[in-house]
Structures are given as structure tokens and as C-alpha cells.
Nucleic acid binder design. Structure first.
Lengths: 209, 209
DNA sequence: GATAAGATACCTCCCGGTCGGTATATAGAG
DNA sequence: CTCTATATACCGACCGGGAGGTATCTTATC
């Protein structure tokens, strides 16, 4: 995969401009996850990608711009998938299960993105911060709408506010990135199923069944 | 208070060393929460406390040392309270409710500590990181033990692993600091009660009762 | 030649940390 | 009580280094 190893000034035959950008993003993804945004210098990113600052500033406006693009590509992806679920004709409760799975799947499949989004968001400022926050809120709102619909339909108890349910579920899912090990024995689908069961059916053993 | 190597130190009565130190900690608490550890310079902390770098380095070994002390004072406090709950003679399920409340109460009452612990932990290194991680794990373990006891006693269903239940609950509670507004209408006790109900009794409305 | 893609040298800024000095309070000697 | 020695508490000028960012030049493609 890594074809470009030229530290000298030579252009390979089919050189790929988009590939260079990707390489920078991928290096940043790794380094930001490992060491955090502030503790990762431009120099490190550029060396990791076997490039130079010149290349970097040809593709990005600033270090913050890179951070924003990383977060944006994840949010856009999650937003798209979440919309697909909410716009489906599945029952509200099934949509909730699907959203839980989507969220956890994101954690499992895109760890660096999630880590960076959760931990480095505050390094964004101004418009970029607003943009990312807005998109995050949109995803949250999709959860909230679905949950509210489930409550209104009488499928979920109405003595707990939908807002609180939403935050509870989001928290459970978001927290997974703190402990879930993709290489462990537990598959993310199992986590999703058990979390869903826990929230929807409850934990208490009583005499009703 | 941790003093490992000391050479017969005694505090003169007339001075107020603890006050100065507190002022530095309090300034750091505010600034770290607002701007993050890396984006807060020593100069800012010291200016905010109306002191100088000289004073700072008289009380702390380094910037990281200050960060560690802040996290430590929170963890010690939570650990103490959590132990008290687990060592009580309340029923396991009631202990779980109490632990959930403790965790959420921490978020509400010590926002800056929680924010700094959750977001800036990675800025610690070596022994200090290990120490904080160990104490965090101890708190988590108290949750886990209690939950396991509840499952073993037959109070909670046994088809969801205690470990997963623990992480679910911890996530819900930890996430609260992302959205909970202490000045809002909702009291933290209500959040705790509703989260407990959600997890323990479940959300689904069925015909069995 | 125009333009894109990238390399290299360089700039300014400010960060964490140091270090010598000073002021204050207490303890002990006389 | 005063005088002095000493430890604490704090000040603030200073430093090396590395940070993000820029200017300018070179090379490849059309």
C-alpha cells in the first residue's frame, strides 16, 4: 500500500495528489489518537507521512484545519447512516436498537476518529467548532426524535424524559471507546445487543416472567 | 498530601502557604476546565492567581505535578465515598443506586475536577499516570463488585455480563458532565433516580403488569 | 509558460523551567 | 530584650528549544 517512499525529490510515475493528502490525514489520525492534538507537532505528522511542511500547507490551511477535516469526515459519515435509520420504516424501538449499534460500530471501526472527536474537539475554534458542534447536535437530535416517537407511541414508559433517555444511551455508547478492545473476544454486535436489552428490558429480575 | 522526601520541614505560623497553594490550584481548575491543560500556560495560571512563577515552583514540582494533584484530590474523595457505600449493609441493588448517585453528584458538584480528569488525564505520564489510572480502576472495581454481587444474589438478570453492566452505568454517569447544567431546572438527584429506573427496571412497556 | 505539488530554509513567538536574589518569621544565644 | 542564623515563601529576569507558520524555490504535467 505504501508506495511512496521518496525522501528525495523525485516524482514516481503515477503520483497521486489525493494520496498525499490521505497520507497526511492517516498519519495525523494515528498520532492525534496516540499523543493528542497539542502534543503532536506538525513536524511529527509530516515526518510520519514521509513528507514536508510544504506539502502539508499545500493541502491544509492550518493544523486546526486538519483537525476539523478529520472530525468532519467522521460526523458526516455517522450523520448519513443515522438519517438512513431514522427515515426507514422500522418500528421506533427497532430504530433505537439500530442507532445503538451504529454508534458502537463507529467506536469499533473508527477508533481514531472517535478518540479525536471526543478528546480533541475543544481544540477547534470559531466557525470550525460551531460546524462540528452543530453536526454532533444533529446526530443527538436523531436519537432524541426516535426516542420521543417511541414514547409517544406508547412503546416506552413515559415517566422518564426522552431527553434523559437520549443522554443515557449516548453516554453508554460513547463511553465504549474508553474500554472496548476491538481485538478482544467480545464482538461489538454483542455489546450493542446487551446494551439494548439492558436499557429496554431492564436488569431487575422480578416475578413477572 | 503526599510528601515523600522531606528534610525536616516546618511551616511558620504567620504565613499562609496553604492559601497560596489553594489559589494556584483554584486558578488552574478554572483555566484547565476552560481552555485545557496544554492551552493554559503557567504564566496564565500565575497571573490569574496574582502570583508569580517563583511561587508556583515553590509549591509544585512541575505543571504536570499540579495536574496530578488536582486529579488526585478528586479521585481520593470519590474513592472514599464509594468505599463507604460498598462497605455498608445495604442491599446490592440499593448500593448500585447509591453509586450512581455518587457518580452523578461528583459531576454536579465538582465539574472542573471531572472535566479535567476526563479530558486531561492523558497529559500525565509515568508514575503519576499509573497512580491516577490505578485509583480510577479502583472506583470502577467497586461498581463492578457490587453489580456482580447483585447478579450472584439473583437480584439482577445473569444473561448480561456484570462487566458490561458496569461499563454501561459508568458511561451514562460519566457522560453527564457533557450535558448536565447545574443551573438548570433538573436536579442531579432526579437524574440519578431516572437513570437508576431506566437501567434497573427498563424502558419497555409491556402487558405483563 | 502556467500551474500544481512539494521541498527547504527560516522567522517569530512563547512555553516550561531555572536561578539568584529578597523578604519575612522563628529559634536560639547572650 | 536584641542580635543573628536559618529556613520558608516568594519574586522576576532570563534561557534554550520547539512550536506553527511563511517565503521562496524546484520539479513535474499540461
Amino acid at each position: 500500500m505504501v508506495e511512496k517512499k521518496s525522501s528525495r525529490r523525485r516524482w514516481p510515475e503515477g503520483y497521486d495528489p489525493a494520496g498525499t493528502r490521505r497520507q497526511l490525514v492517516d498519519s495525523a489520525l494515528r498520532l492525534f489518537e496516540e499523543r493528542g492534538f497539542d502534543r503532536t507537532s506538525l513536524q511529527q505528522i509530516v515526518e510520519d507521512a514521509e513528507l514536508t511542511k510544504g506539502a502539508f500547507y499545500h493541502h491544509f490551511q492550518s493544523k486546526e484545519d486538519l483537525l476539523w477535516q478529520i472530525q468532519d469526515e467522521y460526523l458526516e459519515s455517522q450523520l448519513k447512516d443515522a438519517r438512513k435509520i431514522v427515515e426507514s420504516d422500522a418500528a421506533p424501538v427497532e430504530q433505537i436498537r439500530a442507532l445503538i449499534f451504529l454508534s458502537l460500530e463507529g467506536v469499533a471501526k473508527h477508533r481514531p476518529h472517535v478518540a479525536i472527536f471526543q478528546q480533541e474537539r475543544r481544540n477547534l475554534t470559531g466557525e470550525r467548532l460551531e460546524d462540528v458542534t452543530r453536526k454532533r447536535d444533529e446526530v443527538d437530535a436523531l436519537f432524541n426524535e426516535t426516542i420521543t416517537r417511541a414514547v409517544d407511541a406508547g412503546d416506552l414508559r413515559d415517566d422518564i424524559s426522552p431527553r434523559l433517555i437520549t443522554f443515557g444511551i449516548l453516554g453508554m455508547c460513547a463511553w465504549a471507546f474508553q474500554w472496548f478492545n476491538p481485538r478482544g473476544t467480545m464482538k461489538i454486535k454483542d455489546v450493542a445487543d446487551q446494551f439494548s436489552a439492558m436499557i429496554l428490558d431492564g436488569l431487575i429480575v422480578d416475578s413477572r416472567n
